[in-house]
């Protein structure tokens, strides 16, 4: 086989091979990225009876697909914040003794306004508005 012919075939094989691999890689990578499913549009959720909710306690509420922490303070005031820690995505809880929001994963602490006060969280927790309508707690997107 002449060298030119061999060179030509090698180039052809090279281009074909690389092209083939690229053509295969793209659909595989695209396949792995999950299709966007429509997010349920939620503006408000009901969270049960305000009087039945014990003071100095908390509950995690489903707000669409996201968790929201609902706290009733000693004074009977309701506070709703995003329950997803801004550090590494864990779900926070309310500490009855310190009256703070605490993330057990990396010891992140927020106050009841959602401000990150100590530990690794880089941002505050998003706050939600709470209304009481006929003893029913209603959580809505703030602003």
């Amino acid at each position: 086989m002449s060298t030119n012919r061999r060179k030509f075939l090698n180039i052809l094989l090279g281009i074909g091979g690389i092209g083939g691999l690229t053509i295969l890689t793209y659909p595989i990578l695209s396949y792995l990225i999950p299709p966007k499913s429509p997010k349920p549009k939620v503006n408000s959720v009901k969270a049960g009876s305000a009087t039945a909710f014990p003071a100095n306690s908390y509950k995690i509420i489903k707000f669409g697909r996201k968790p929201v922490i609902l706290v009733k303070t000693d004074q009977g005031k309701f506070v709703a914040l995003s329950a997803t820690c801004t550090h590494l995505d864990c779900i926070v809880q309310y500490k009855k003794d310190t009256k703070q929001i605490w993330c057990a994963c990396h010891n992140g602490i927020y106050d009841l306004n959602g401000r990150n006060v100590s530990g690794p969280p880089p941002r505050p927790l998003k706050s939600f508005a709470v209304k009481i309508v006929k003893d029913e707690i209603i959580i809505t997107q703030a602003g």
Partner: peptide
């Protein structure tokens, strides 16, 4: 439970 707080000692 995706809607429960992370437990202490995680």
């Amino acid at each position: 439970d995706p809607f429960a707080s992370a437990p202490a000692g995680i």
